[in-house]
């Protein structure tokens, strides 16, 4: 065999490896970003850095869980940011810095998330409009309601107890939020990989017609994925409010795009049917590390934006390219 064919073989095998082990690739990218951060700013090797990165990754990984489910099912949920902001405001308004309201806040927030998720699901699935536009329109309405109900004024704050369960550093490094992750992550893994619902979700995303023919209730599965997304986003809003201590309208709107990109970088595709939560967690880590790395460059704002865009496109090029028509 000539050298050229060995090279070609190697590259095509490498390409195949990249395409099939997307979650691993995301972890690999995260490690590269981590090393780059330490090279650019050696003083980053400190416990504040690790604590913050873990905390923010976990907060992002929660709406990313819901987004993963929705994307696997073949939809898209743009309402994640609006629901997070809404429950964050609910948290600070109800708690007003006093302990003891957590259960009340928790149940109302979950209810809000479930209702919005249900509306999202029904409108995207039953009515047949593109999921992106519909969830965006509903997110707009949720956002406007935030303003009307609060009159645009921020007041109140999360209770100190709740803030401690999120930000307190165990051994001085690990933020207490890992306790929440220890509950939510395994549940998500179980739902996606082990439960019957998860298997049906993958089937629905892969080939809805075939899934329907085998007796899977396609619409119901999809709507449930939206409800999951709403509930998870609502819970993330509570934790986010505890992290920020105060909240204002539209505070977490950026999480709509952030969760989407994190999930895509983690290997899930818009077409549905593939993806894993491990990849989404790795994708969340990549997003947080990327933002941190860009800040450490100390660039003026326009240069930072341009660099952010270029890196994002490079990341997408790695393994998010759809199949060519020739294949």
């Amino acid at each position: 065999m000539s050298d050229k064919s060995i090279n070609r073989d190697f590259f095509s095998r490498l390409n195949l490896f990249i395409q099939t082990h997307t979650a691993l690739m995301a972890v690999f990218i995260a490690i590269i970003l981590l090393i780059a951060t330490f090279i650019v700013s050696p003083s980053s090797l400190n416990k504040v850095f690790f604590g913050n990165i873990i905390l923010l990754t976990i907060i992002l990984s929660i709406p990313a869980a819901g987004q993963t489910m929705v994307l696997i099912g073949g939809g898209m949920d743009f309402g994640v940011g609006a629901v997070m902001s809404a429950t964050a405001i609910l948290t600070t308004y109800t708690m007003r810095g006093q302990n003891g309201h957590f259960l009340q806040v928790f149940f109302i927030a979950i209810a809000i998330g479930a209702v919005v998720g249900l509306i999202n699901g029904i409108c995207s699935v039953k009515i047949g409009l593109p999921a992106m536009i519909v969830t965006m329109a509903i997110a707009n309405i949720v956002t406007r309601m935030q303003y009307i109900l609060t009159d645009g004024v921020l007041s109140g704050s999360a209770s100190p107890a709740l803030a401690a369960t999120v930000s307190y550093r165990i051994f001085g490094v690990i933020p207490a939020i890992v306790m929440y992750a220890a509950i939510i992550w395994p549940i998500t893994f179980f739902i996606l990989n082990k439960s019957r619902y998860g298997k049906q979700l993958y089937m629905v995303g892969n080939n809805p017609t075939a899934a329907g023919l085998t007796g899977v209730k396609v619409d119901k599965i999809r709507i449930i994925s939206y409800v999951f997304s709403g509930v998870l986003a609502a819970f993330a809003g509570i934790l986010g409010a505890a992290y920020m201590a105060t909240a204002r309208c539209q505070i977490f709107d950026g999480y709509a795009y952030d969760s989407l990109i994190a999930v895509i970088i983690g290997g899930t595709t818009f077409a549905g049917g593939t993806g894993s939560y491990a990849g989404s967690i790795a994708g969340s880590l990549v997003m947080i590390l990327l933002s941190n790395l860009l800040t450490s460059f100390n660039l003026p704002s326009p240069m930072r934006n341009i660099l952010n865009a270029v890196i994002l496109i490079l990341l997408l090029m790695l393994y998010n390219r759809s199949k060519s028509v020739r294949q």
């Binding site: 992106m132 795009y257 989407l260 990109i261 895509i264 595709t269 818009f270 952010n308 865009a309 994002l312 496109i313 997408l316 090029m317 998010n320 390219r321 759809s322």
Partner: peptide, 9 residues
């Protein structure tokens, strides 16, 4: 690449 994310970037 996915058009939505390209537009975003």
């Amino acid at each position: 690449l996915p058009a939505l994310l390209v537009g975003y970037a």
